[in-house]
Design a protein around this nucleic acid. Structure first.
Lengths: 338, 338
DNA sequence: ATCCTCCAGGAAAACGCTTTCCTCTGGTGA
DNA sequence: TCACCAGAGGAAAGCGTTTTCCTGGAGGAT
């Protein structure tokens, strides 16, 4: 690998001059030397060592992002928003997938600190796990203390600037759609119990039930892993235990898709025999049949706002920006036929 | 930010000793010093500067991957395979999205070289663009010359080790499905003309047509961007120009989904009035209605094999590993009713 | 002709770590 | 008692850049 010294030698100049020409310093250099150096760069196919550059400059320009899984459309959308703002500000983004493993999340905070990123953004659900939360908060505090910026998306357990999706309100909207439509026996396909996203959405759903004089008994709630196949399994269990349901709310769209596939396989018509409501409004929602009624979150915008918060100067007090949920009515849900 | 020197000072040892304890050298150190250093690390919340470590060690452990867009399921699957093998070998993976912009691809090769990665993997379609191909080949050659490893997925324009999806064979399989089913008027939703993936798949399709004594006239081929919405637009144009079609082959599943949505919107029944065949077998394929008949590529495995090639020692001659295509028959296609 | 100013270019320190090589101590064997 | 050896710990030399500070020469002003 050619180094700056090689280039300088070949061009017959000092490394200092070569560096100035290559990385565009403000210092003036004669055209003749400039040309000699650029020729040497070209001939040697020289590319500066990024790590050495990093060490020598005192900059701190990259931004780290920790998500559960980028290939999940939910996070893909958020990431798109994050990237847009980052790129507009000339920042490089390092993306880390925790695959919903808290310990891996802890490791990635260390890794990003080691990479000297200017900011760390955590996206995705929080965990009901005081020990872990404490450990994570500690690591983030240490980072913040040395000038690092932190912002989070949808994780109210953590301190710092935050963008908060209205998960409870969204749950309420889904609840209004089914209970308001006259459904009494409503099943729920929930996400993992330890995630705050699950409990928040569930809370909103419960509020709607109460408002319509209904309840959400435990036997009509099954917990799955927020993905299609576990959603399908959960749906089978739910239908076996409570065959008299007339509506199912899945707490994300992936699981709702699994629900639809099970209903199709059992010959249960949607929405005439069973209403189905999802959550997130992922792109697939409009392509399944029947198209999915779902609660929409402005994912891309949430990502953009979280990045903006992270790049702005630190405010005196942590800022919290809400992100509203809206119901997108499609064909998978209908009022209860009387 | 605390440095190694800070830790050493606080523990009352030399930086050398601190380094040995922290990064687990083989050299022996007394328990007492070890404990003092670890305590200091904890108190200062010290994390080693990764760039400095990189510079000091002569290692070369990270691997770079350039894809069109990770949030596209096609690349998400490939990336999963790449990651599996990389993680199993203790390698960090840096992922770069070119968003199908050749110049960005060039930039990323430089970036990855600057990051001193041990290998660069390019995944996705090649371009019919001699000038660009030459530039890219040149950059990769410079990298290879300094000990870098390169492997590609589905890019026969580039030299080096490669995993080659059977795009032409896959196109042929799709063709056999429709022409072999008796269809005569077959429309094609193709990808961008400049991509070799498009031309390869199209070539296979043509071969099948010829084999069954049919042709694929230009007016029955429309070009789109390999995404759902452009696929839908293309389908509308195709149907308007050639209303007598009985089958449509889309050269990837995203576009096939767009095709299905247009057919639904126009009240054309699938497969009784129109057969639809996709390509790639993305997860959505089984969740649309009717479930999509499609050509399957072993994406995850392709990723895993490309990473394996990249991590193995360089062979004397470039190795090319084929990846076979198979037809997955579902409900969106049927023989022509006579 | 002399002095000063200005500026292009180079020497060298610094960034934060790893690792080689060296020193010094304490223990062992004759 | 002396010589030797082993092993723990430290000094210092890098790794490849950037950047500060300095040098020397050209040109202008007096």
């Amino acid at each position: 690998m050619a180094t700056l010294a090689d280039v300088a030698r070949r061009a017959g100049v000092s490394p200092a001059t070569a560096s100035r020409i290559i990385s565009g310093s403000t210092k003036l250099v004669t055209d003749e030397l400039r040309e000699r150096v650029l020729r040497a760069v070209d001939e040697l196919q020289y590319v500066p060592n990024a790590h050495a550059q990093f060490l020598a400059r005192a900059q701190r320009t990259a931004v780290g992002v920790i998500v559960h899984d980028v290939s999940d459309p939910y996070f893909a959308e958020i990431t798109r928003g994050l990237q847009q703002v980052a790129t507009a500000n000339g920042r490089l983004v390092i993306i880390c997938n925790s695959y919903r493993d808290p310990s891996r999340e802890l490791e990635y905070v260390e890794l990003l600190r080691a990479q000297q990123v200017a900011a760390i953004i955590l996206a995705g659900s929080g965990y009901h796990d005081p020990a872990f939360t404490k450990a994570l908060t500690g690591k983030l505090a240490a980072y913040t203390r040395t000038g690092g910026r932190v912002s989070v998306i949808g994780r109210h357990e953590l301190p710092g600037d935050a963008v908060m999706p209205a998960n409870a309100d969204g749950g309420h909207l889904a609840g209004v759609e089914v209970f308001g439509g006259g459904h009494r026996k409503v099943g729920v396909i929930a996400g993992p119990k330890v995630l705050t996203t699950t409990t928040d959405r569930l809370a909103g759903l419960r509020r709607a039930a109460k408002q319509y004089g209904r309840t959400l008994p435990p036997r009509r709630i099954v917990f799955a892993d927020f993905d299609r196949d576990s959603g399908a399994d959960a749906t089978r269990r739910l239908l076996d235990d409570a065959p008299d349901l007339t509506a199912i709310v899945a707490l994300n769209d992936s699981m709702a898709v699994g629900t639809l596939s099970v209903l199709r396989e059992r010959g249960i018509a949607v929405p005439s025999q069973m209403s189905v409501v999802g959550f997130d409004d992922m792109p697939i929602a409009r392509d399944v049949t029947p198209a999915l009624t779902t609660v929409r979150l402005p994912l891309t915008e949430m990502g953009a706002r979280a990045m903006t918060l992270a790049l702005e100067d630190r405010a005196r007090t942590p800022r919290v920006e809400p992100a509203a949920a809206t119901l997108v009515h499609r064909e998978s849900s209908a009022p209860l036929a009387t």
